[in-house]
């Protein structure tokens, strides 16, 4: 109980928000908009899982938004060329892996700081994509949306896929050697090395996995509508990093729980809909979003301060 205090308190904050909504704006819970909203969050959730691994490994990746855009356009162009969906899916994941591995190689191989490396790759992919696509939407052939299923089926499939992935990753982080390696390297890379873990390979793996998940998430985003916007990844990095932080992942590595990330993402994602349902004016939204992030970290700070004394 005490060990998961942070994750539970985020879940409690989410529950409180939902309770207020249930009392003030019960229509918030009518099934249709709820399903659409949750489906729209699935790509972010998949990227957030990968981001959590990288942050637990004591690194950070701010290029995921640009990677997401590149993968989405690659997927969109292939689908528009009439290639079957599995080919599209694997090419997108592959492109993500290549970009993730490049970050990983620069960080783990050359020993460069991840925040700077990914700042540079963020700009590079983003501008290259702008030069290549000029902002043009990619129109997808009919039958791509929802994998050719009906809307309800497609949404259910996406939500289930994201949840299964989350559960698998959470299980793996706890029970597989590779998962424990990530915690070990994030806590103390030198100690991990002495214990026989290869910190470089672990870091490279975390970045590559994040890239692959970003590629997967891009496809999950592409199939939700009949067209792809090349700038669809803008701001994604801040959103998922904030979700990780609010969900209790420590930025100096070694600590974090994927279910906490899930709760953090839901909490942040529900603020805007909640404010609309409560008829709060739009110019307050950004300030409230910032306040929630700050409150989460302040609460954490106060707790650790008390426990230090």
């Amino acid at each position: 109980m005490k060990r998961y205090f942070r994750e539970l308190s985020v879940a409690a904050a989410l529950a409180l928000l939902l309770l207020v909504l249930a009392l003030v704006a019960p229509s918030f819970f009518s099934p249709q908009p709820l399903l659409s909203r949750l489906t729209a969050q699935t790509p972010s959730l998949v990227v957030a899982v990968g981001m959590a691994l990288v942050i637990i490994c004591r690194q950070i990746d701010i290029s995921v938004g640009s990677q997401f855009g590149v993968c989405a356009v690659v997927a969109g162009l292939l689908a528009a060329a009439g290639l079957p969906l599995p080919v599209v899916l694997f090419t997108s994941i592959g492109s993500g892996m290549v970009m993730g591995a490049l970050n990983g190689w620069l960080v783990a191989g050359l020993g460069l700081p991840s925040i700077v490396v990914t700042l540079a790759t963020m700009v590079t992919w983003q501008e290259a994509l702008r030069l290549f696509q000029q902002g043009k939407f990619v129109n997808l052939p009919p039958g791509t949306q929802w994998f050719g299923l009906r809307q309800l089926g497609g949404q259910t499939a996406l939500i289930c896929a994201a949840l299964v992935l989350l559960a698998l990753a959470a299980w793996a982080m706890k029970n597989l050697a590779a998962g424990r390696f990530i915690y070990a390297v994030g806590t103390d890379a030198e100690a991990a090395r002495l214990a026989g873990i290869n910190p470089r390979r672990t870091t490279l793996g975390a970045f590559t996995l994040l890239g692959a998940l970003t590629g997967l998430a891009a496809v999950m985003n592409v199939v939700q509508s009949p067209q792809v916007q090349p700038t669809c990844g803008a701001g994604l990095e801040l959103k998922v990093i904030a979700a990780c932080v609010v969900g209790g992942v420590a930025v100096n590595g070694g600590r974090g729980n994927l279910w906490g990330v899930f709760a953090g993402l839901l909490l942040l994602a529900m603020i805007n809909p909640a404010l609309t349902s409560l008829h709060v004016e739009a110019h307050w939204e950004k300030a409230i979003q910032g306040l929630v992030i700050l409150l989460a970290v302040v609460a954490d700070g106060l707790r650790t301060r008390r426990s230090r004394r």
Partner: peptide, 24 residues
């Protein structure tokens, strides 16, 4: 109401979903 979408199709979709829900 007036909502911003940051020139993002996906954010516009999310905001429109919220608006449809909040103003039946």
């Amino acid at each position: 109401t007036t909502k911003p979408c940051d020139d993002q199709k996906d954010k516009a979709q999310a905001e429109a979903t919220n608006i449809l829900n909040a103003y039946p």
